[in-house]
Amino acid sequence: MLKSLRQQLRSTLAGPFDRDYSELRFDDRGHGYDPFGAHRDWVEGAAAVIAPLYRWYFRVRSYGSEQIPASGPVIVASNHSGTLPFDGAMLYMDIVHHTNPPRLPRPIVDLFVPSLPVVGTTFSRLGVVAGSRGNVHRLLNRGELLLIFPEGTPGIGKPFSERYHLQTWREGHAELAIRHQAPVVPVAMIGPEEQMPQIAQIPVSLFGAPYLPIPLTLLPLPVRYHIHYGAPIPLHRDYRPEQADDPAIVHEAAQRIKDAVQCLLDHGLRQREGVFT
């Protein structure tokens, strides 16, 4: 009875996004959890919770999702912004929704995130993984899809005046792509950079978080999200795995990815009719 009610609620919330998650590729270790703590039911539940935001609040429009490889290791690299990581949630939802069979995106987050009570555990159930080198190596070895925001925490806290200008672009994802021979799909997210302008940052160290953001609005503004996927950058064809040890090569590859994301951002901004439309 309770299960059927839950199922019905989930279907109602998810609407057209309600799909068969039994096909979700998953390293189930016998109790329904993968070694990183992800669980299919949580992914399904999260999809139902995120779907209304995706459909009605941010009214996400997705372009070029067919660029995401159906299998094998892949790194999705995107710009990052918006004070709170709604951009990560929308991109996560978009990938789950547009891949067939559904692929579980593994968002890579800062190392302080697992220290956050409730948040760290909830995120791990959904497939989020802290970005230590060992973790990401293992995921790519298993042929998983990594969601990386090379701008990191400075990106999500960038000043409003810097919107759509990529911040310091970390290079670890390029090294990983070369070493694991994984293609990189560049992604530009238009919308989140305007959702929650930040007016201040209080430099407190709570559970390892670098600062406490003070946004202009209590809730994110209902901006329209546009997610643009670019053609996969074939770093796996252009470089050999051993070249991952060459800093110049890694820098060059990271710059290629950054340029591709900036190009998609510029293109998306030109196409956009308005912040809320």
Binding site: P35, F36, L111, F112, V113, V129, A130, G134, R138
Partner: peptide, 12 residues
């Protein structure tokens, strides 16, 4: 620890 890999290899 939070900042260490969750999967423990022999060189952890």
């Amino acid at each position: 620890r939070a900042d260490k890999p969750q999967i423990l290899a022999e060189d952890h």
